[in-house]
Amino acid sequence: MSALSLKTYGMLAEFGTPADIFEAAMRCRDAGFSKWDVYTPFPIHGMDEAMGLRKSPVGWFTFCGGFTGFFSGMTMIWYMNGFDYPLVVGGKPLFTPLYAFPVSYELTILLSAFGTLFGMFFLNRLPKFYNPLFKNLRFRKATDDRYFIVIESADPKFSVEATRAFLTDSCHATAVELVED
């Protein structure tokens, strides 16, 4: 089977230090790649900016979840206690936002958390059970002491030769290899 008949996933580049990969990430960003990612054993502060990532939109999911939680809590209690089955408890009004507040507040937190978690899953297209990188032996060091950049072949700027040259010469990767799909 020839190499050309294999589908490629992307180009994997290995780096030895956080400083090197930081520099390389900025070069990839400036080169205008869009489908690429950085893999490190621990978070590197400032990497978001170095990669040119936009602010995560996950906050909007959180907000919508919280908003829904608060108003569904209020509406539920009004409907149950003040409208559908009016019941006087302790001489208090049939409905007031005051005693509905603790429940609405808890629901705000609960649905905000759901919004955050599931919004993040949705945005990251999770759950995803398989990634071609898992097969790559070199990539296993990403959880130990090596730092990786992967530029996917789906990127419009990707070409096997040019990208390999870019990662080796401009980014000073210690090793570059093609990852099969």
Partner: peptide, 15 residues
């Protein structure tokens, strides 16, 4: 903070 070039080269030399 995003490390400055100086801080980056300093951390690189310690590795």
């Amino acid at each position: 903070e995003v490390p400055t070039s100086a801080a980056r080269s300093a951390s690189a030399s310690t590795h």
